[in-house]
Simulated scan of single mutants.
Amino acid sequence: MTTNILFAANATRWATYEAPLRRALDAAGLSYDLSPEHAPETVDYIVYAPSQEISDFTPFKRLKAVLNLWAGVETVVNNPTLRVPLARMVDHGLTRGMVEWVTGHVLRHHLGLDAYIHGLNGRWTHNVPPLARDRRVSVLGLGELGRACAETLAGLGFDTAGWSRSARTIPNLTCLHGADGLTAALERAEILVLLLPDTPATRDILTAATLAHLPEGAVILNPGRGTLIDDAALLTALESGRVGHATLDTFRTEPLPPEHPYWAHPRVTITPHIASETRPDTASEVIAENVRRGEAGEPLLHLVDRDLGY
C-alpha cells in the first residue's frame, strides 16, 4: 500500500527538499507518494514547516504523525486539533551547525578578538586572555543542542556547566537544575549560552532580576529563542556594564525591525537566525526513518512531550 506524505511548506522549500526527501524515502525502501497537494483525507504523514497554512488538522482522517522540519515546535505543539504524534527535528547537520556557531562565538569573546578585528589604532596593547580552563561558561538548556555545545566547550577545556529544569547527569560536565541551580549557573557565567526551547516556563528567563546574578561584564550568546530574553532588561544591563556584550541570533520579531535599538548598540552583535539551519539532506534522512518506523509499527524518534512543550 502506498503511503501518502504531504509536504506542508512553501514552494521554495518544496523545491529544495523534494529531491533529497525522495532519495531518503527510496533508500528506506518505502512505497510512497510525496506531494505538496494531497487531499487531506488521503494523507498519512505531514512534513510540517511553521510557515505553511495548516492550522486545522481535523480533515486529516488518516493522519498517523506530523514530522516537524525544525527543532522548535512552539507554533504547533498546543494546537487542539492535532491528536496524532508530533516529532521534532533532531538532525545531525542542525546539531553540528549549532555547535560550530556557539564554539566560534565563545572563542571570539574568550580571546577578545573584537579588539583586533576593529583595530588597535597604533596602540600595542598586550592583553593576554586566560586559558580556557580559567574561563567559566554556562549553557542554559541540556537538550540535544545544548548538550552537544556544552560537551564541545568542555572538551576544549572551558570550565563548563549546564543547566536544565530537571536533574541530568552528563559525564565530564557540571550539571545544575531547578531554581537554585539556575542562580548558580548565572553567578558563574562569564559567558552564558542560551539553548532553551520556547515554553511558558522558559519565556523571559533573563529578566532584570536574573541578569543581576551575572558577573560584571558577562557575555550572553542567544542562538536559542528570542522569547528567552526581556529585551528592555538586557538593554539596561548592557548600559550599566552588567552585560559586556550580547551576541544574538534569535529575536521576538523576525526579521528584526530596522528601528530596533539592538541594531545600533555598540555592544550587540546580530546574526540573522543563522546559528543553525535544518540541512535538507540530513533532515530528509530523519524524516524518512520516522516514516519507515511508523509504517513498521516501531516507536517514532524525537517525539514531543505535549505537557513540556518540546
Results as ranks from 00 to 15, higher is better:
Glu151Asp: 06
Asp114Lys: 08
Gly29Tyr: 03
Tyr17Lys: 01
Arg136His: 14
Glu18Cys: 00
Asn121Pro: 01
Gly162Ile: 12
Pro257Ile: 03
Asp56His: 08
Glu18Tyr: 03
Arg123Gln: 13
Thr169Gln: 15
Ala15Asn: 02
Pro171Ser: 14
Ala283Leu: 03
Gly226Gln: 13
Val90Tyr: 13
Arg23Gln: 02
Thr42Cys: 04
His110Pro: 01
Ala161Val: 11
Glu285Cys: 01
Ala150Ile: 12
Val90Arg: 06
Ile205Pro: 09
Val139Leu: 15
His177Lys: 11
Arg96Asp: 01
Thr250Val: 13
Lys61Phe: 02
Asp198Tyr: 07
Ala167Trp: 07
Met1Asn: 13
Arg168Asn: 15
Ile287Gln: 08
Thr199Lys: 14
Thr253Trp: 07
Arg23Lys: 00
Thr95Leu: 13
Leu140Ser: 11
Tyr262Ser: 10
Val128Gly: 11
Glu41Lys: 09
Thr160Lys: 15
Val102Thr: 13
Gly93Met: 00
Val291Asn: 00
Pro200Ser: 04
Ala184Val: 11
Thr95Trp: 08
Asp307Val: 10
Leu67Val: 10
Arg279Leu: 04
Val128Trp: 10
Gly162Tyr: 14
Phe251Trp: 07
Ala71Leu: 09
Pro272Arg: 00
Gly146Pro: 15
Val66Phe: 08
Ser138Trp: 07
Ser284Arg: 04
Thr247Ile: 06
